Amino acid sequence: MSRPVIAYVTAPKGDHLLSALVWFVISISGGKPRRLRHEPTSGERRFDGLILMGGLDIHPSRYDASIEVESRFDPERDALEISWLQHARDHDLPVMGICRGLQMLNVFYGGDLHQKLDAELTQNWPNGPLGYTFFRKPVTLQGESLLSQAVSPANTVMVNSLHRRAVRKIAPDFHATACGERGGVQAIEADHTPLRMGVQFHPELLVYRSDMRRLFRRFIKACAQ
Rank of each mutant, 00 (worst) to 15 (best):
Gly55Thr: 01
Gly30Tyr: 03
Asp57Arg: 07
Asp57Cys: 06
Gly49Arg: 08
Ser27His: 05
Phe24Tyr: 14
Ile28Gln: 07
Asp57Thr: 04
Leu52Gly: 12
Ile58Lys: 01
Gly30Arg: 05
His16Lys: 12
Leu56Ala: 15
Pro12Asn: 14
Pro33Gly: 07
Leu56Val: 08
Pro12Ile: 08
Lys32Ile: 10
Ser19Ala: 13
Asp15Asn: 15
Val22Phe: 09
Met53Trp: 08
Gly30Asp: 03
Arg34Gln: 13
Ala11Pro: 00
Glu44Ala: 05
Trp23Glu: 12
Leu17Pro: 07
His38Lys: 10
Thr41Trp: 11
Leu52Glu: 11
Leu52Phe: 14
Phe24Glu: 04
Ile28Trp: 02
His16Phe: 14
Val22Asn: 00
Leu17Asp: 15
Ser29Thr: 05
Leu18His: 08
Leu17Cys: 11
Ile28Glu: 04
Lys13Val: 11
Leu36Tyr: 09
Ser61Val: 10
Trp23Leu: 07
Ala11Gln: 08
Arg37Gln: 12
Gly14Pro: 08
Gly31Asp: 08
His59Ser: 10
Asp48Ile: 01
Arg45His: 05
Arg62Asp: 03
Arg62Ser: 04
Val22Gly: 00
Val25Tyr: 01
His38Asp: 13
Lys32Glu: 13
Glu39Gly: 07
Arg45Ile: 07
Phe47Cys: 02
Gly30Pro: 01
Trp23Ala: 05
Ile51Gly: 02
Ala20Leu: 13
Leu36Ile: 09
Gly54His: 05
Ile28Pro: 00
Lys32Tyr: 07
Lys32Pro: 00
Leu56Pro: 00
Ala11Glu: 08
Thr41Lys: 11
Glu44Trp: 06
His16Asp: 14
Leu17Trp: 10
Gly14Phe: 11
Ile26Met: 04
Val22Ser: 02
Leu36Cys: 01
Leu56Gln: 14
Val25Leu: 04
Arg37Phe: 12
Pro12Ala: 15
Gly31Glu: 10
Leu21Gly: 04
Phe24Met: 11
Ile51Met: 09
Gly54Lys: 02
Leu18Ser: 13
Ile51Asp: 09
Val25Arg: 00
Leu52Ser: 15
Asp15Cys: 13
Arg35Glu: 11
Phe24Gln: 05
Trp23Gly: 06
Arg34Asp: 01
Arg45Lys: 14
His16Val: 10
Ser29Lys: 04
Pro12Gln: 10
Asp15Ala: 15
Pro33Gln: 04
Lys32Thr: 12
